[in-house]
Every structure is written in C-alpha cells, then in structure tokens.
Amino acid sequence: MDRRTMLRAAVVGAGTVALPFTAWPAAYGAPAQNATGPYGPLGAADANGIQLPAGFTSSVVARSRQTVPGTSYVWHDAPDGGAVIPDGDGWIYVSNSEVGSAAGGGASRIVFSATGQVVGASRILSGTDNNCAGGRTPWHTWLSCEEVSRGRVFETYPLGGTAVARPAMGRFKHEAAAADPVRQVVYLTEDEPDGKFYRFVPTAWGDLSAGTLQVLRAGSATSGSFTWATVPDPDGTPTATRRQVSGAKTFNGGEGCHYAGDTVWFTTKGDNRVWQINLAAGTYELAYDDDLVSPGSAPLTGVDNITGTSSGDLYVAEDGGTMDICVITPDDTVSVFLRVTGHSGSEITGPAFTPAGDRLYFSSQRGTSGSSSGGITYCVTGPFRD
C-alpha cells in the first residue's frame, strides 16, 4: 500500500470528508523529482491558448476592463491571488487586484450557481495598494494582503459585509495567508529577499481584530526543527517586523501559502523553492527545489501561488517561466499540469478549486498584452483526481 492509499484509508477510517479547502496531504518525502504527471502529457493549445491533458477543457470567465459576462460589473486590472468560497449550492471566486489604490486596487468577486453559471459579480474591497495574494478563512472571509512596505491585511466578506483592516496581523510586505483551524492560527508570508514566515494567534478564533504576531525561528539549513517567537512591535515602525527577533529564519521572497492536515506549505520565489512545515512534529524541510530536480531540467520555476486538493496534490503557479501550473504529488513527483501560451509578459495567479474539486480557477495577470489591463481569468474543468 503506497502513502496515498494509506492516507486515504486513514481519512475514511476516521469518518472525515476531505474537501479541497481542507486537503489531507500524504507524508511527503521531499524534495519532489521529475516524473510523468498523474494526467499524462499536455495536448496542443486550445482556442484559449492553454495546453491541457486529455479530458480537460478551459473557458474564459472574465477579462480586465470588460464586463463579466452575465453581469454589469467590470472586472478589475491585474487579477492576482484568489480563492473559492462556498455559497449555498454554488460558490464565489474572489480575486485580488495588484495595482495601486489610485488605479483601483482591492478585490472583487464572481458569484456562481450550483451548475457553474455566473450569476453576479461585484467589488468587495477598494482603495488599497497592490493586493497580491491572501487566504481564505474557515468562516468564509477572504484575507486580502497588500504587497507594499508596511502593508496591511484586510478581511473581506464575499458573502456580505464591509471589509476591515486587521493591523494586529502585522504591517509588512504581505503576500499570502493560510488558516490553521487545528492550532487556531493564521500563517503569513513576506515578500522580501530577507523575508520571514509568521503566524498570527488571534485572542479569539474567528476574530482577527486582536492577537499576537509571531515569527518562525530556526537555523540556516534547509531542514530542521523550529520554534515561534513573539514580534514585539507588529506595527513595524521604526523597526521592520522582520528585523525585530534575533534568530528568525530568513526566506527569500515568500509567496503562496497553503495549509492542510498538520502541514503548511509556502513558496519562495527568490530561490524557486516550496517549503513544508510539519506542525505536529515541529520540523521543516523542502518539498521542492529547482536546483535539486532530476532527471532533466526543472519543470517549475518562478514559484508563486499554491493550492491543494483532497488527493494531497499541490498545484503551484508560475510567475514567468513557461507560464505553467505544476503538480507536486504525495509520491514526491513534480510535473506540468497546464501551460498558458502567448503570455510571456504575464504570470499565473489565483489557482483555486471548487468544493467538488472538479473546477480550477486561475488568472493570467497581464494576459497577452503584458499590461495590467490585459488580465484574464479562466476556469479549467475535467477529471481531477480525488
């Protein structure tokens, strides 16, 4: 019995239903190596310029500066981090806009019916700067993060409500967030060459208005044990949060972040790595390093946003590279799942699965034009494994 089978047997035996939002990962023996992907080779580019494995199809959901089909709402520029929020029998896809406040920075939503038809779209956050990535909470809000010096986290309400800043979560160059309902904390990445990895411990779970910001402390190696230390001044002035705690481990350009089953994964673009932290064991190691891949060249470069599925597969989007979304499996393999052609001046952003796990949303932030006004948001459907 392989690790995937053992994992799924354990989940079923525990009477737990695993969804893409709470994916159960297998015991990765990182770092991942090249292998044939679980869906086979890519086919020729389709009408949308996307290469996919057999059985998968793509569609365009929205384009920047154009009305979202079926609504009167104009889709925002530079779509970036995203997530899917359950909404009755349907769902909502939320997406950040990585432009300045004067250019319309913030976040938007697209509302889908149970059959995947667009039934609405609207703005959920305005007047903020360079909202890059973020994270979904178990209480169905979206944490939209500003990627600027002393940036803020904004809690938005896709199901209804007014967005609010959460300064207790720290003022720094925020990237992504991932909620851990077991330890009742939120993990945070920092997009700096000497960035750190944080967790926010709310005073009360479900209320992010107050709490304690902590930073991961560890040695300089790529694996080992770690501890958490409190950041004295989360406001980050006059001393930046990343420079307040001695022994805080440096990560080169923190990007996407994903939590599932006592493990948190995050990406660092400066060295093309995916890190994994075993929260139960108190250890960290590499899930992927493009310098350690064999045989052949690394399929995944420019690592960025990351998400996961109930199968334990991780989907990692590229910022640059060959505009791929790659799959890292619990069997420690890495392969290309899809490739967007003709978008060399763009990056892939916002990968997120529906609750059923049969639809994957993502965006090309700048599309074929290479401009923030050229963003395109897609949906891929097909036989994703569960």
Rank of each mutant, 00 (worst) to 15 (best):
Q51S: 14
A121W: 05
P138L: 04
F226S: 10
G43E: 11
G224A: 12
F337I: 05
G236N: 09
V303F: 03
L213A: 09
W205T: 01
G170I: 02
H343D: 11
G90W: 02
V245P: 07
E285P: 00
V185C: 12
T381K: 12
V334R: 05
A204R: 12
G104H: 02
R243M: 06
E255K: 13
A83R: 10
T237D: 09
G206L: 02
G13F: 01
I348Y: 03
S209K: 05
V201K: 14
A210Y: 00
P167T: 01
C326E: 08
V11D: 12
G161F: 06
L279R: 11
E285Y: 02
G151K: 08
A179N: 01
E147L: 00
S64G: 09
F172T: 12
T203Q: 13
Q184P: 06
T189R: 05
D2R: 04
R123W: 00
R243F: 12
G29E: 10
R150Y: 10
S371C: 01
G375F: 04
A352R: 02
H258L: 11
T5L: 14
Y187C: 07
S149K: 08
T137Y: 04
F384I: 07
G236P: 09
S101Q: 14
T241E: 10
A44E: 13
F200E: 04
G40N: 10
R65G: 00
G88W: 05
M169F: 03
T263Y: 12
G375K: 06
N252Q: 08
Y187H: 12
L216E: 07
V334E: 12
R65P: 00
V84G: 11
E255W: 04
G270N: 14
D262E: 13
V245C: 09
G224C: 10
P53G: 07
G40L: 05
F154W: 15
V215T: 11
Q33A: 12
A54H: 01
W228T: 10
L208W: 15
C145M: 13
G49P: 09
T377I: 13
E318S: 15
D313Q: 13
V164F: 00
H140R: 11
S64M: 03
F200C: 03
S64E: 08
S346G: 08
A27M: 09
Y361P: 13
T241P: 13
G282L: 06
E347G: 13
Y378L: 00
V303W: 00
R183T: 10
E192K: 10
V153D: 04
Y378A: 02
K269E: 15
S108W: 01
A287K: 03
L188I: 15
F384V: 04
P238V: 01
M169R: 06
T368E: 15
A30W: 11
G382K: 02
